[in-house]
Simulated assay, not measured.
Amino acid sequence: MTEQAATEIAETGVDDKQLPHHSLLNRLYTGTGAFEVIGRRNFYYMLTAALVAISLLSIIFRGFTLGIDFEGGSQIQFPNQGNVSTTAVEDVYHQALGMDPVSVQTVGAGSSATIQIRSEALNLQQVDKLQNALFDRFHPKDSSGNPNINTISNSDVSSTWGSEITKKALIALLVFLVLVTVYIAIRYERDMAIAAITCLFFDMTVTAGIYSIVGLEVAPATVIGLLTILGFSLYDSVVVFDKVAENTRGVLHLRKRTYAEQANLAINQTLMRSINTTLIGILPVIGLMVIAVWLLGVGTLKDLALVQLVGMIVGAYSSIFFATPLLVSIKERWGPVAEHTKKVLARRESVTTGDGAPVAVQPATVMASSRANSESVGTAPKPGARPMGKRHKRKR
């Protein structure tokens, strides 16, 4: 079925049982899915509030698993050319130094796999003792295939370096938010800027909360990756806002539709684009995690890819189910949109027959003219229905 035909059916107001049903993908593709988002905004507000509350509670009481760049310490690594288990490495560490390491993990796969040991800051004597113990137990080999103690490397990281990275990232975040607020306020309007910035704070809070709940390690690359997902989420929100601005242009001079109904139509029209954008963005990130992290063992890319994957999913939710509903709520609180909404709803309630009963919309099979008049009798349009005046005329 064409988009025009689907629009006509959506505007008739007949019982859904009398209408042909189409697959979810078909309705998403044509933008006539009639998905009620604005009308169910209270549900999405409660879901959003629950996500924020859980994230904040986890951040406050559970905290984050900070990487070595933030806490400082020593990192020892050597090639894992055999089946060296992390448990065996922990035993060697404990026997050599009399304490346990912070973490031991295998990074990469195949010939590029390495064992990484993260511990508290070690002095030179402790490093030498640990390197000798590891070499005697596992005999790691160099590129020529000969056992060599020099393959066991050590690096010390100062916690001040991670603090400097975080400080600069926060400054960059503040500048980013200010510039975005000014741009949206000038390009669109103040209310859209408020909704977009609130949406960005939601994205940051929930993404950080997921890291806290799951216990994912926070590294400087995680902080940098957080800035990139904000741009992705903002882009998706602006796409919907642009359609909202187009649909609501001149809506205050009409008496058939409210601002909220036009905004819900914009969500339906851009829903498939938002889904496609998210999927296309996620696929390279997954490829980055599989190839660069699992095969090549590049830990920095893992930190960057994880925060992007989590942030893109959270951003897709917020741009569809939070940003636009929040914009509508702000608009309907005060100002001309609030007055217009009251007039439209009052007009619909006042449309009655001679005996005071509400006017019923005629089925399409009874009166063909009811298609053109269905919105004029005071009935609310279907969530995915286009305004009658914007349809293309049929060719005779």
Rank of each mutant, 00 (worst) to 15 (best):
V102F: 14
N150W: 04
M367C: 04
T353K: 15
L226A: 13
T228P: 02
I9R: 05
R348H: 08
A385M: 02
S274G: 04
F61H: 05
T30N: 11
F232M: 12
L134Y: 10
S143Y: 14
A364F: 12
V314G: 07
A316D: 03
K168C: 07
Y211R: 00
E189N: 11
L326R: 10
T379P: 03
Q4T: 14
A133I: 08
Q269D: 02
H392K: 15
Y29V: 08
Q4N: 15
A292S: 12
H340D: 06
K343H: 08
I184P: 07
M192Q: 10
V92D: 01
W334E: 15
Q262P: 01
V178Y: 03
L25S: 14
V344Q: 01
A372W: 08
R386P: 06
S212R: 05
T151H: 12
D156I: 04
L170F: 15
P284I: 00
F322W: 02
V89W: 00
M192D: 05
M367A: 14
E339G: 02
P387D: 13
S103G: 12
G384L: 05
K393M: 13
L51H: 06
G98L: 10
R386M: 11
S153M: 12
Q362P: 06
V14K: 01
L271K: 00
I9S: 04
F176G: 05
I224F: 10
A245N: 10
Q362T: 12
H94Q: 15
A109Y: 09
R40C: 03
N268Y: 01
G384S: 00
A323E: 12
F201M: 11
F135N: 04
P147S: 08
F176P: 02
V240F: 04
G67P: 02
G315Q: 06
A219V: 04
